[in-house]
Design a protein around this nucleic acid. Structure first.
Lengths: 124, 124
DNA sequence: ATAAGTGTATTAAGAAGATTAATACACTTA
DNA sequence: TAAGTGTATTAATCTTCTTAATACACTTAT
């Protein structure tokens, strides 16, 4: 499912939230599919069930999972979180772009990078 | 000089590094000026001198300060760190931009944001 | 009905890292 | 010489993450 990085100094549950969120939002987990149970994922990753529970609770809070008592946790449909996810990433992008401007990086430079990353041309 | 945010859960020394780096790279501290002594800044922020020392050591490692034994720490000239700073910010910008693409944000949208933030137009 | 599997909650203990504290030393400046 | 500087060391305290051992309510399959 996911792989933990033990060089990462952050708490395990945070790392799990990040990796699972990426897995879900990148389409690595189909919508409405059942997530591994708290206990089984804990076993698989050799961590405590409480740690997995904490990660799942955070993912539910953020809208990427929903839980049916007694049945399990399931991947939320993209329609539910796509907008929020985009808004979140866009805010981060704006912040970093302002930092780039502060650091003296020219707008023209970022424009070229943008073309590079998106693989298209925007003018003419 | 700087203000600590006690809601921030990161270690104090990390927070200090970030704030002082921003202060220096945004021109808030003139090049070659003397930084507050470890002891005086510790007093001002009500933290332990060791904590300030740790932040200063990191800033020196990153090239934003230099130290003269017995005299104090001084702000490095922009020429020394500008290039590294730009490279660092650019890498971060590229990462976030890829994340934006992954999240389904259109390149055209980012292009408009770029114009907004830099306050100019790039195409004809 | 029963058993097994699910999420959730609680309490306690452990482990790791950040922070404080109290010193000490070498250097520079007045 | 005295005061101010950065730096180093050692120990103790504090906080947070993590583990551990249970317990409970719910759902599904038998």
């Amino acid at each position: 499912m996911i792989l933990l990085d033990y060089r990462d100094k952050r708490p395990i549950y945070e790392q799990m939230v990040e990796k699972l969120e990426n897995l879900i939002t990148s389409g690595g987990l189909e919508a409405l599919t059942k997530m591994p149970s708290v206990r089984s994922l804990a076993m698989e990753l050799s961590v405590n069930p409480n740690t997995v529970q904490r990660a799942y609770a955070q993912l539910e809070q953020d809208g990427y999972l929903y839980t049916v008592s007694g049945r399990g946790s399931f991947v939320t449909a993209p329609e539910e979180w796509r907008e929020n996810k985009q808004a979140k990433v866009l805010r981060e992008w704006q912040t970093v772009t302002r930092q780039a401007r502060e650091a003296g990086i020219l707008g023209e430079r970022l424009f070229r990078e943008l073309e590079e990353i998106y693989g298209r041309a925007y003018h003419d």
